[in-house]
Computed example of a mutant assay.
Amino acid sequence: MKISIDEKSGFCFGVVNAISKAEILLGEKGKVFSLGDIVHNKVEMSRLENLGLQSVSYNDFTKVMGKTMIIRAHGEPPLTYRMARELCIDIVDATCPVVAKLQKTVKKAWKQMQEADGQVVILGKRGHAEVVGLTGQVDEDAIVVENLEDLRQVDFKKPIYLLSQTTQSLELFDEVKAEIYRRAKNDNITIHDTICRQVSNRNPHLREFSKQFDVVIFVSGHHSSNGKALYEVCRAANENTYKIEDGTELRGEWFENAETVGICGATSTPKWLMEQIATAITTL
């Protein structure tokens, strides 16, 4: 059996940056806090926790008073920084540069729409950390849509400024854009494609990668939105695609008639974990 690991899978730049900052701080301080899981991958989080990283929620802020806390790659709303300052928490900002730029763009879009009596529309997943950070830039005065059906919230008689969560599908963004143009009652429409190409370019790559193998193992944390989306891309290209979080979920029957196996993963999946999975497959 030939096993191949996708060279383009694994951490995106934003995640690499956040984890690198965490590792440096842990080496210096021994114990550091992160607001939420620094990466949506249970196995990688376990590794970092063993080094001294502790994930906390908003309810735990008083426990972090006077200590060091990392803002993960997803970014945070201004309220988080104000709360941290009030509690003398030392913030280390690991917001992905692409997300930080988008936060500024959302604020500019909101000001533009305020002057035109318009609406800011963000294609994204409600409750996702990045989206919470984006809507927080404008005191929640933005419409979040997850699909075409959600466009019912939009007043098509007013100006519209469309943006997107950085990890959204390009295909869905194009569908939403086309539907807005179709239903708009005026021509004051601004479309700003803010999808990160380092992430979106993985779709066509993984589609072709998955076609090359008898079996595909997609490695991702169960709570990773990016992982769920990329898994569906692989699954559509190869029905013998299986999603796992770690090697304990592998099943021998998946490989009974397989001569080739491809291993790939989400932007929150470490390369070392995919290598570990490859070794685990050979021992089944």
Rank of each mutant, 00 (worst) to 15 (best):
V99F: 04
S20H: 02
E86I: 09
S220K: 00
A184T: 12
D150V: 06
L148Q: 04
T167H: 04
K2V: 03
F33S: 09
F156N: 13
F156L: 09
R183K: 12
M83S: 13
D117C: 11
A229C: 05
Q276H: 13
M45W: 02
V219S: 03
D90G: 00
G10T: 01
Q137F: 08
Q168H: 08
T105N: 14
E175C: 03
E149A: 13
L87V: 01
K158V: 03
E232P: 08
G10R: 07
L170T: 14
A258G: 07
A142F: 05
T105K: 10
S268N: 08
P159A: 14
R85I: 06
G14R: 01
G14M: 08
I70W: 09
S225H: 06
S164P: 11
I244L: 08
I217D: 00
I180L: 12
V199Q: 04
T80V: 15
M83T: 10
N188W: 02
T248E: 15
I281K: 02
R183H: 10
R85W: 05
V16Y: 05
N226G: 09
V145P: 09
E130M: 10
E245Y: 09
G127V: 10
E239T: 12
P77C: 13
H40S: 05
L87P: 11
N240D: 09
N41H: 05
T190Y: 15
E146C: 07
K243C: 12
A100V: 13
Q54L: 15
N203V: 15
E275V: 01
H40A: 01
G10E: 03
L87S: 02
M45D: 03
G118E: 10
L230Y: 08
A236W: 00
L134F: 08
D187Q: 15
E140H: 13
Q153Y: 10
K2I: 09
A258D: 04
A18C: 01
K42T: 15
D187W: 09
A237E: 00
C264T: 13
W272L: 07
D246E: 12
V98Q: 13
H205E: 15
A109L: 13
V106C: 12
D150F: 03
H40C: 03
S268H: 05
F213S: 10
A109Y: 11
N59S: 13
L148P: 00
Y181D: 11
D141A: 14
F213N: 07
E115M: 12
K8Q: 15
W110H: 15
Q212G: 06
A266M: 00
E256D: 09
H223I: 14
V39F: 03
A73W: 11
D174N: 09
T241F: 01
T282H: 07
A100R: 05
V132W: 06
I38E: 05
A84E: 04
H192Y: 13
T166K: 07
Q168V: 10
T80H: 12
A258C: 08
D93F: 15
P78M: 05
F209L: 12
K42I: 03
G247S: 14
